[in-house]
Design a protein around this nucleic acid. Structure first.
Length: 163
DNA sequence: GTTGAGCGTT
């Protein structure tokens, strides 16, 4: 099933503090890492939530551990499709991860798959969030479409995990 | 030796 990102954010951002020594509420119910049955049944959007299709094969990955690198990110997203690029943004001054990165797939199909399979999942002990990336390079054909009055991507704050 | 907002270099 497809979960709304904002819903997950509410659930996970209760304390906004990773590894809470006193309110480890989640650790008690962390015993159900049941994998999705992978019901590859597309065409039935009756249960679709606020999960609009991607408009770009480029994904913005946030919530990465500072120990996570490009290669780790690549290994995490590789099985979901053909990665044209995978990059964890690191600070050039300190040379360490900024805690987020980008992955780019060959097709939107792969990107959507990876997004719904990897959103709010674990990587290096941290919950990562997958969202469409903002275009860094302005496109030659922007959208003069008056239909779009929504100019924002939902950003997810990072959440730690006890483990 | 990390503790956390946010969208990257070639």
């Amino acid at each position: 099933m497809a979960l709304s990102s904002s819903l997950l954010r509410r659930l996970l951002l209760r304390g906004s503090t990773p590894v809470s020594s006193s309110s480890a509420t989640f650790c008690s119910s962390a015993g159900s890492p049941t994998q999705s049955p992978l019901s590859s049944v597309f065409g039935d959007d009756t249960e679709v939530s606020n999960v609009p299709p991607l408009t770009t094969p480029k994904l913005f990955i946030s919530g990465l551990s500072r120990l996570t690198t490009d290669e780790k990110l690549k290994n995490a997203f590789a099985p979901f499709g053909q990665l044209l690029e995978s990059k964890v943004i690191t600070d050039r001054i300190s040379g360490r991860s900024k805690g987020f990165g980008f992955v780019r797939y060959a097709t939107l199909e792969e990107a959507e798959n990876a997004r719904q399979e990897m959103n709010a999942k674990f990587l290096d002990g941290w919950v990562i969030f997958v969202d469409p990336a903002k275009p860094r390079e302005h496109k030659p054909a922007p959208q003069p479409d008056t239909h779009s009055s929504h100019t924002g991507f939902t950003t997810h704050k990072t959440v730690g995990w006890c483990g």
